[in-house]
Design a protein around this nucleic acid. Structure first.
Lengths: 145, 145
DNA sequence: CTCCCTGCAAATCCTTTGCATACAG
DNA sequence: CTGTATGCAAAGGATTTGCAGGGAG
């Protein structure tokens, strides 16, 4: 349990109970959560924290590079503890979010190449590209049974 | 000026003054606008319309395929009249949005390939991928003069 | 002891909605 | 005429902020 304290310290963050709760949530389920759903999940575990604390900490953990924000899904932001580059598919119907392994493209991280080319040619300094593709998941495609 | 009427009709939309104003705005400047900035720009031209009408019509024009929405920039949505596939760079500092020509990647529309691979392997049905990379534009990188 | 974090509630930002009126087809 | 678009204002959802108290270092 001291892991959390050192992890936080290494990233310039203080320890707090909400932070531990959030980090252990991510450690267990390597999932894509919204602030609201994370808040509800932690409350159900008996944790005492407020929604604003969840927002604050998701922001802090993101700044620290411990988690990543998935942009522009549908109003609400999702967070992912998987830091390594990968893409996401989001179902417009049920909201499901799944990872899209990089392997689908012959092991080439194409967005990385786009970024590098863009930096060379444009003079911009860029972050890691995020690729999220909207669509309909297999379940939602099926006619209602 | 009858262009607008026919254009709208061909896309199953009625004519209205706000619609004409919005379309001609896009026709002149091939730019990336938010609902708010479009609203202000049109008011300054003397157009009488409301912000909700702008939202409604941006939605309608998007549905009709006349404009495209750029997802996940920073809370507010941007719209682009350039329908052809291309990427965007967004400056975190000043909010500038610029096009990233596809040429930077040897003419290969990589996100398209990602989409196709994903559809084959995952069973999802996907929309066109949108790639927006956050960063800092050359102007904002310069030390204040 | 100092500063950062928390909780709560109020505030803010962007977008959508309800409803009566006006206009296109 | 019929139906859809408009304007206004009010509602809505997601996130941020202000402030006083509490805990970390």
């Amino acid at each position: 349990m001291d892991d959390v304290r050192t992890l936080l310290k290494h990233h310039g963050l203080r320890y707090s109970k909400p932070r531990e709760a959030i980090l252990s949530y991510f450690a267990e389920r390597d999932s894509h959560v919204s602030a609201e759903s994370l808040y509800l999940a932690l409350r159900q575990r008996g944790e005492h924290l407020s929604l604003s604390t969840v927002y604050l900490n998701l922001g802090a953990l993101k700044e620290a590079g411990l988690i990543r924000e998935l942009g522009g899904i549908s109003g609400e932001a999702f967070y992912d503890s998987n830091i390594s580059p990968h893409y996401h598919l989001v179902c417009k119907s049920c909201g499901a979010v799944v990872d899209l392994p990089l392997e689908v493209l012959d092991g080439t991280v194409v967005t990385q190449r786009v970024k590098e080319h863009a930096e060379e040619h444009s003079g911009w300094r860029l972050e890691e590209p995020k690729l999220t593709i909207l669509g309909v998941c297999p379940d939602c495609q099926a006619p209602k049974a």
